[in-house]
Design a protein around this nucleic acid. Structure first.
Lengths: 242, 242
DNA sequence: TTCTGGCATTTGGTATGCCAAAAACTTTCC
DNA sequence: GGAAAGTTTTTGGCATACCAAATGCCAGAA
């Protein structure tokens, strides 16, 4: 917590000159394993095979070069997050979401983002709201989003995260980030599909306008309807994605 | 996943007659420890003392009669939930929420519940909506909520949980339950304070009416404003609670 | 008495080993 | 041959031992 009390052996020594830098906390193996496994799970395409993807404690501990104990603790954490499910004497499987679960998550996301929009209209600085446009500055009628789907998808996600951050609500930020990981981690394709991008950009700009106008109700509505639109889209067209 | 392949020793035995009940999964020590610790944490009043409440792995393992391993896994899970924070070679401390964190959580709760209300207007059966009134059937002008604060507080929470359940959205249900544990687990007093109960009941009835009328926008608004009212109340008067 | 250096203790982190249940594999017997 | 019975292997659950860092205690020096 506090640094060691400075020695007084040399009464006039320059105590502050050593420029101590606050030693690095060196994250534990447990947390390193958690991060590594989480990233690996989000990166893998678990829907490409019909059989559930299984993890093996011993194999993982060997791959990561640590014992099973920190691996097991990381697994327990991932299970709390809903990324894996361990079945005794059966194995650890990566959880596969159904379409309706994804739709459900997007709806919750819509709820949280619309609340973020509401809060932003009353607290955020105009400068910060306007800065949200920057995420789409590379797209216009000469450079359509639907012609750069991957790039637009990334901008899309960055925009939404920046928007939520403007609410200055840690809870909203954390909850939406978690949902986003589940929704997009498995299928990047879900967001930014070509036929969504056409309507996406104008809706985003509409949201920003409402925020700038400090129109609480309108901003909330536009944020909600935009994301609910995504939910409806997935519900209608997402069958083949899962 | 699948039941054991039925034996064929007796070709004509009535296989379906034994009514297998899905053998008890015999929850693991890890999960038992998780449940026990979670309950204990929610039950304790961590704001009554100025010093942070610390947990000790070895003491817990002795108290629960298991080794440290499942205890540590349970702790890792609780840390994911945000109930405890472990600091290497320092200890495990029960997380204390600040007032602004609680307010933040209540706002997120408002967002989720208003979405639940929205969904209910389009999917729930009228019968189920009307049944929500039952939670308040023991309160009227001859038996005011403010005269039975504890009882009303319980009915209040049960009502909100039943409401969210009507949305048939597992995500909304889970997220709000988690938030509720954090908000009320530590301070039962936060909800159901005498000066809130007066306005609480009419607002609840108003929410039910809007749901019955299938007025999506109104139901959403009333649900949101009701819970945001609680947030505002805590923000304004909650100082002494923390 | 006060301060300092060192040792013992505490505490979370990690590695290992063993267990039981389930699954995979092998053997045996009709 | 094929299936039942027996055996081996696999896999997560749990207990235990040891480690290193942080803290506290205490004797000895100033």
């Amino acid at each position: 917590m506090s640094l060691r009390k400075p020695t007084k052996a040399l009464p006039n020594m320059a105590e502050a000159d050593i420029a101590i830098v606050r030693i690095a906390p060196e994250s534990s193996f447990k947390n390193k394993a958690y991060d590594a496994l989480k990233e690996a799970i989000l990166k893998m395409d678990i829907y490409s095979t019909p059989e559930p993807v299984m993890l093996d404690e011993r194999a993982l501990s060997e791959r990561l070069g640590v014992s099973r104990t920190p691996i097991r603790e990381a697994i327990a954490m991932l299970e709390q997050d809903g990324f894996v499910k361990t079945v005794p004497r059966r194995g650890i499987m990566v959880v596969r979401r159904t379409k309706s679960e994804i739709v459900d998550m997007i709806r919750a996301w819509a709820a949280l983002e619309s609340m973020a929009a509401r809060l932003i209209t009353t607290t955020a600085r105009k400068k910060d709201i306007t800065a949200l446009r920057d995420y789409f500055k590379d797209f216009n009628k000469d450079r359509l989003p639907e012609d750069h789907v991957e790039e637009y998808s990334r901008a899309n996600i960055a925009f939404h995260q920046a928007l939520i951050s403007l609410s200055e609500s840690p809870v909203l930020v954390d909850l939406t980030n978690d949902l986003l990981l589940h929704v997009r981690g498995y299928r990047q394709l879900t967001i930014g599909r070509k036929d969504r991008t056409a309507t996406s950009l104008p809706e985003h700009l509409g949201m920003i306008e409402a925020l700038e106008a400090r129109d609480t109700e309108l901003a909330e509505k536009r944020a909600r309807d935009h994301t609910l639109g995504l939910a409806a889209y997935v519900e209608a067209h997402g069958q083949e994605l899962f």
